[in-house]
Design a protein around this nucleic acid. Sequence first.
DNA 1: ATTAACTCTATATATATAGTAGACTAATTT
DNA 2: AAATTAGTCTACTATATATATAGAGTTAAT
Lengths: 140, 140
Amino acid sequence: MLSKKAKYALKALLYLSKNNLKGVTLIAEISENEGIPKKFLEQILLELKKQGILQSKRGKEGGYFLGKAPSEIIIGHVVRIIDGPLAPIPCVSKMAYRRCDECVDEKTCEIRNLFLLVRDATIEILDNTTLSQLEQKNIL
Amino acid sequence: MLSKKAKYALKALLYLSKNNLKGVTLIAEISENEGIPKKFLEQILLELKKQGILQSKRGKEGGYFLGKAPSEIIIGHVVRIIDGPLAPIPCVSKMAYRRCDECVDEKTCEIRNLFLLVRDATIEILDNTTLSQLEQKNIL
DNA sequence: ATTAACTCTATATATATAGTAGACTAATTT
DNA sequence: AAATTAGTCTACTATATATATAGAGTTAAT
């Protein structure tokens, strides 16, 4: 499940990507144009900045801009920053593995082996899509 | 994300499938063997019964048993019964579609078009796996 | 000095998840 | 018929997560 927070993050990144040549962009501008609550968006952008996805300029004439090229920003990475692991259950997570309490033998757990496939399919898509590729998806 | 409830449901179905020839199985037995809280499991099995996945016999000598053959029980169906839609966002859901509040043009929404792929990949796996196939997954 | 804009921490509210409790109903055994 | 066993149903509670909101603090340009 993609949270609204993560969806907002992706919307903001798309907006920033489209406006990247113009220099910095205000949080308020993104908020208004994309319909995202401003104070909520502040937190999201700050987190993306701390993770190196974005950069910012403070004070008057300040704003946000991309921290790297759109072709270098991986969607899976962004979603993980905001929502945590992509894995549908903790026991199939690479980044935040956690054993199941009840599980006797993980290797033979049928449910785990099935949802490993789901994880792999999800990761395959999201870790192989960059922000610049995402921009192209506005046409079917 | 697969909830613990849905994982419990799948564990219970696997257990019932393995014991299907023996006749009925007690909730208490499944609970003890699979480490699932009994009263919680009651609710889960009841829901699966209402949806035709399971059948039960009440009173003394009663218990649960599969409502159809393991090869007829689709894992995607079970997960939907317990957790709701498989779609990662409501706007890509077939069974529980809901438009996004902020979305201007859904067809050109890049995020939607990307997560349609994720949905399709997930559905492809879960709707093409039956309970009998899941049983086979205990070997790698 | 003033203003604009990002930064940081705390708090609030709503919803979902996970689990518990107890009374009720049905079927079997004695 | 009574006792026992086992599923059925409804309500409740606790905790966590998601979705914000508030406000004081910091930085940089004019």
